[in-house]
Deep mutational scan, measured.
Amino acid sequence: LTDEELVTMSVRELNQHLRGLSKEEIIQLKQRRRTLKNRGY
């Protein structure tokens, strides 16, 4: 997933992508998404 996709994707879509990932990967992705959102994309 690109940063842009992460930010513009709805939470529902995101959760579908996260299905099948490990807990660590999910946590990393969610942190990255929060960081991007805070940057004001």
Score class of each variant (00 low, 15 high):
E4H: 15
N15V: 12
G40K: 09
G40Y: 14
L14S: 00
H17I: 13
T8G: 11
R39A: 15
E13C: 15
T35L: 15
S10A: 04
L21Y: 07
L21I: 04
R19E: 09
E13F: 02
L1H: 02
L1N: 00
V11P: 08
R34N: 09
L1A: 02
L18C: 08
L6M: 02
V11Y: 13
M9E: 01
R33N: 02
K37W: 05
E5I: 07
I27V: 11
T8L: 09
L6I: 05
L1I: 09
E4K: 11
N15D: 07
Y41Q: 14
Q28H: 12
G40M: 11
Q16G: 06
Y41M: 11
K23H: 11
R32G: 00
T2P: 03
R19A: 11
Q31K: 11
N38V: 06
L21F: 07
I27H: 12
H17L: 14
I27K: 13
R32M: 03
L29I: 15
R34L: 07
V11L: 12
Q16F: 13
E25L: 13
L6G: 00
Q31L: 11
Q31H: 10
L1Q: 01
R39I: 14
M9P: 01
L36Y: 02
L14M: 05
G20M: 06
G40V: 11
R32S: 01
G20S: 06
N15I: 14
E4I: 12
S10E: 03
K23C: 09
E5H: 06
R33C: 14
R39T: 12
S22R: 07
E24V: 09
V11A: 10
I27D: 10
K30W: 15
K23M: 10
T8D: 06
S22W: 01
I27E: 11
L36D: 01
T35F: 15
L36M: 04
Q28G: 10
T2F: 02
E4R: 11
L29T: 06
K37F: 08
K37A: 05
D3N: 04
Q31T: 09
K30C: 12
S10Y: 01
I26L: 04
G20K: 08
T35N: 13
E24M: 10
N38D: 12
Y41T: 12
K30V: 14
K30T: 08
L1S: 01
E4T: 08
N15K: 15
L18G: 02
L14E: 00
R12T: 10
G20I: 04
T35D: 15
T35Q: 14
I26E: 04
L6W: 01
D3P: 02
R12S: 10
V7Y: 07
R19S: 08
L6C: 00
R12W: 12
T2N: 04
Y41R: 06
T35K: 14
L21C: 04
L36Q: 03
R19W: 06
R12D: 09
H17D: 00
R19L: 10
N38T: 07
E13Y: 02
R34W: 10
D3G: 01
N38W: 06
S22H: 05
N38H: 08
K37Y: 05
R19C: 04
R32F: 01
M9V: 03
K23W: 08
R33S: 03
N15W: 14
G20N: 08
R19D: 07
E24C: 13
T35A: 14
L36A: 04
E13H: 05
M9G: 01
V7G: 05
M9K: 03
R39W: 09
G40N: 08
E24K: 12
E24A: 13
N15G: 07
E5N: 05
L29P: 00
T8Q: 12
S22A: 07
N15A: 13
T35P: 02
L1C: 07
E13K: 07
K37M: 14
Q31A: 13
E25Q: 12
T2K: 04
T2C: 04
S10Q: 03
L18V: 06
L1D: 01
L36V: 03
L29S: 02
Y41K: 10
K23L: 10
E4S: 08
R39S: 13
E13Q: 10
R34A: 14
G20Y: 08
K37I: 15
M9I: 05
R34C: 06
K30E: 06
K37T: 06
L18D: 01
E5T: 05
Q28W: 12
R34T: 08
T2I: 02
M9F: 04
K37P: 01
T8F: 08
R33G: 01
N38E: 14
Q28T: 11
D3S: 02
G40R: 05
E5W: 05
V11F: 09
T8P: 01
R32D: 01
K23Q: 09
R39H: 12
K30L: 15
L36F: 01
L29D: 01
L36E: 01
V7L: 13
L6D: 00
M9W: 03
R34P: 01
K30P: 00
L1W: 06
I27P: 01
E5Y: 05
T2A: 04
T8N: 14
L18N: 02
V11S: 09
K37V: 08
I26N: 03
E5G: 03
E4G: 06
Q31P: 00
V7A: 10
E5R: 08
T2V: 01
R12M: 10
R34G: 05
T2H: 03
R12V: 09
R19P: 03
L21R: 08
I26D: 01
E24D: 11
L14W: 11
V7K: 07
N15T: 09
R19K: 14
Y41L: 13
N38A: 10
G20P: 03
R12C: 15
L1Y: 04
T2R: 04
Q31S: 09
Q31C: 04
Q16L: 14
R34Y: 06
L29V: 14
N38I: 07
Q16C: 13
S10H: 04
R33V: 09
R12H: 11
